[in-house]
């Protein structure tokens, strides 16, 4: 599944780039994130609990940041698996200064869903992914500038 979209952050480009690389911030912003431990250069072990309507499931996986080009762009890879299925997202995040002093973020990538979630949740996946991304950027935006 292709995922693409945009968001706004009320930060300067450098700050926007920095918050998205900050594991403490990411841990707060990734929806359902329980823990984010550094395991290597730009690589983190992720534990998250997804709760959405009656669905709930724990995932373990990793977050990797690559292709860093501060403060313009980087790639983010998130993958996790749990009893209810697995997911993998890989996207390019680009940051452009906006006239209002903030930045326009655009993201573009692929997401894969597997397991029971993929087999029975087709109609939910697109909107759920969008909602989770929206929540992610809302949390980021709440960070101090």
């Amino acid at each position: 599944m292709k995922i693409a979209g945009s968001a706004k952050l009320p930060f300067a480009a450098e700050r926007a780039y920095a918050v998205m690389q900050d594991p403490l911030v990411l841990a707060k912003a990734i929806p359902g994130c329980d823990a984010l431990e550094k395991t290597g250069e730009d690589e983190y072990r992720l534990k998250m609990k997804m709760v959405l309507a009656s669905l709930s499931g724990s995932f373990e996986g990793k977050v990797r940041l690559t292709d860093s080009n501060p403060p313009r762009s980087f790639r983010m890879l998130v993958e996790g698996s749990g009893k209810i299925g697995f997911m993998k997202g890989d996207g390019l995040i680009q940051i452009a200064s906006a006239p209002d002093g903030g930045v326009d973020i655009s993201y573009e990538g692929d997401a894969q869903i597997g397991g029971t979630m993929a087999a029975v949740g087709n109609r939910m996946i697109d909107m759920t992914a969008r909602m989770l991304i929206k929540r992610f950027f809302e949390k980021l935006a709440a960070e101090p500038a």
């Binding site: 894969q112 993929a118 087999a119």
Partner: peptide, 14 residues
């Protein structure tokens, strides 16, 4: 099936 082999019409929901 999607490209990764997931049967996305895996129930009567779809």
């Amino acid at each position: 099936y999607d490209d990764n082999g997931q049967l996305v019409t895996g129930e009567f929901m779809d």
